[in-house]
Design a protein around this nucleic acid. Sequence first.
DNA 1: CTGAAAGCGCTTACAG
DNA 2: CTGAAAGCGCTTACAG
Lengths: 418, 418
Amino acid sequence: MLNAVVNCLTIMSDASNEYVVKVKAGSEIMAQIMADQSGKSTDVGTATVRQAKKKRSKRKKGVSVSNKGTTGSGKRVGIREIARQAGVSVATVSMVLNNNPKITEATRQKVNKVIERVGYRPNRLAQSLSGRYTRVISILMPTLRHAMADPYFGELISGICDRAARLGHKVMLEHAKPDFIRERRHIELFERRFVDGVLCIGFNDRHAFMKDFVENDHPMVVVNNMFPQWGLDHVVCDYRSGAEQVMTYLQQLGHRKIGLVHGAPEVYTAREIIEVFKRRMSIASNEFEDSWMADGRFTEEHGAEATAKLLEAHPDMTAIFASNDKMALGAIHYANRHGRSVPNDLSIVGFDDIQYTAFVNPTLTTVHLPLYELGVLACERLVERIRGKSERVREVLPTHLVLRESTSLAASFSPGVG
Amino acid sequence: MLNAVVNCLTIMSDASNEYVVKVKAGSEIMAQIMADQSGKSTDVGTATVRQAKKKRSKRKKGVSVSNKGTTGSGKRVGIREIARQAGVSVATVSMVLNNNPKITEATRQKVNKVIERVGYRPNRLAQSLSGRYTRVISILMPTLRHAMADPYFGELISGICDRAARLGHKVMLEHAKPDFIRERRHIELFERRFVDGVLCIGFNDRHAFMKDFVENDHPMVVVNNMFPQWGLDHVVCDYRSGAEQVMTYLQQLGHRKIGLVHGAPEVYTAREIIEVFKRRMSIASNEFEDSWMADGRFTEEHGAEATAKLLEAHPDMTAIFASNDKMALGAIHYANRHGRSVPNDLSIVGFDDIQYTAFVNPTLTTVHLPLYELGVLACERLVERIRGKSERVREVLPTHLVLRESTSLAASFSPGVG
DNA sequence: CTGAAAGCGCTTACAG
DNA sequence: CTGAAAGCGCTTACAG
């Protein structure tokens, strides 16, 4: 047994490796889930389900009911029963419910008293079917690997959910897989009256389906990205300013040989960072070339790879600007494993200010994006659009640099020289 | 300007501090959001909204329409129009839609052809109002600070969303703030027909409102926790086995002086870990006492505090078992800042296997929880419940230890001694 | 196997 | 200011 442990340790000595001890073999449950995931879904016929539906007997109007929201037989109380008990018409009850100013205060109170006593709750399916709004919005995001587990999305979604609740809206979550789009389910969301509006997160220039929303005149707001080519509404963080701050800061620390690990360039904001970086580097030195940049595709893994590429091409590099925190972590991970101490040998700056970057080692210097606030704003603007506001939405929220431990003076830097 | 930079660096020298450079003052937008957040919501009266609703003229049945899902005037095609074009009754169309086996193959095809050509999509509000199901489930979670940004929740939610989509269900997100519960909105979800079922994540023994679901006979499944006292359905990871594996592994590495940073004890699974820890420690030594345990309340911050407490009480401690990854990160963070190198001076084990723990420094030895799979399973079981299955749900998914860099042989340990 | 009609529980012109 | 009635777009007994 001790041998086994020692073996583990041996294997661990290649620090970048990971050795998994499976103590318990996958149970049947797990096996089933795995099988389900690759196979096709169990076809539970709707017809079968329908048969389970309880018989509905024709109901006479105005049967008397008990007073706790349901009849003795479990039937829920409707607006008609409220009207009867309050001695008014259903129209009046409906108007009370909707705060229609035509209703007298006296009538309102009388009706509300009954509603309270009975514990009546309007059926929102009926409300929406008759009315104009579903009061539901949907968050649409790509199927990245377990995308929800990414704090970047999480912060945005938190902001959206909180504000939606405040505005009386429910939030649905939707993953835009390829077949989802092919079957035009994104439009179906509106056509079948699931939602009043959609918020798009995490898409890029290749996701042309987003045009469909404006073409069909459905409210949609892009969150933290922009698509000027398609004229889409958006709210976004100020990536340019953030990038400028990073470059200024690194250069003030004396760094001249700076590499960029950027996100996928089909994303507008990733291109903004690239542009700022190129311009600043070109100003600082006229020998700038593209080998100072590498695509880290927004993930830790590719961030580490991109770092490897940069360090190989430029062993004298003293700083890396990673355009999100995950790539920055990948960069630190790689540097640590290849004899570069951060920040002593290599300064690293991230972007996003994901919460846990304050707890990694070293803690990460990064650009704070107000993602929660952006989610709030997106939700706010979307609901305005739903309610008929017609101006195009284009809002930019400010960003700021957060200094932590992953950056320091360039090794070759002495204040006197500058 | 250089002075400013140097100042920053000075401030940074207290490594646990964080110095924020606000380059751009908050814009009006930000200010507004902040104000909104603390203030109460803008009351956009429903009545006002209603007035914007376009006039609905009484429609004669059977008006002829163009064939792209809408009439020339933009009105959507309904089941009646499909029936007319296919030369059948609306009942037949409805049955085709619901795969009712009573329908002839010939009729089915005839109707489907029209549906296809016209691009008809059934209005799901009408479907649900007439039918038994909304085909929506809700994920209910507490309002932890930006809870959605936590990968732990994210993994679960990913699994839930993916499986829900496969089962033809939509997923709604709900934050259970105190007033949400007080107003019984969790029950309202069912009463107003928002959802068919609810999945609860992140609650503890103090959240007695969860009883309301079973009392009102509404489908609800607890995800990754359990409440035997209330007889709630649950799916959960095997915390006991995970804890046993950690203890076995640490003891094999020669650790005897082990501390536990546990989660809030009002959580059942947190108590499971505590129990295993106590038992194993009592077996190993008869001088075990509670000062080897500290509450880290599931966060990095409190994990670091708990670590401080443990190290103060037991400077000779050689290993820490943190019962989630965030607290483990907090522990490493603290140790690094107080002259303890991980794993050389102090081994640290986490719990959860959040994705990024493979990229922190050092990478984290932890217990893998199949959270995504658990989400899938929870969704599956909930839908079965919705469809009438009556057996109580109690499922446990296996866990396993993942060895990485944050653990090593106890300093005092020599293989010959054991 | 199919059709005519009632019903789901609301909202909204329209007429008092 | 209020009531009677039509309508939202489906599903489902019920009768052929």
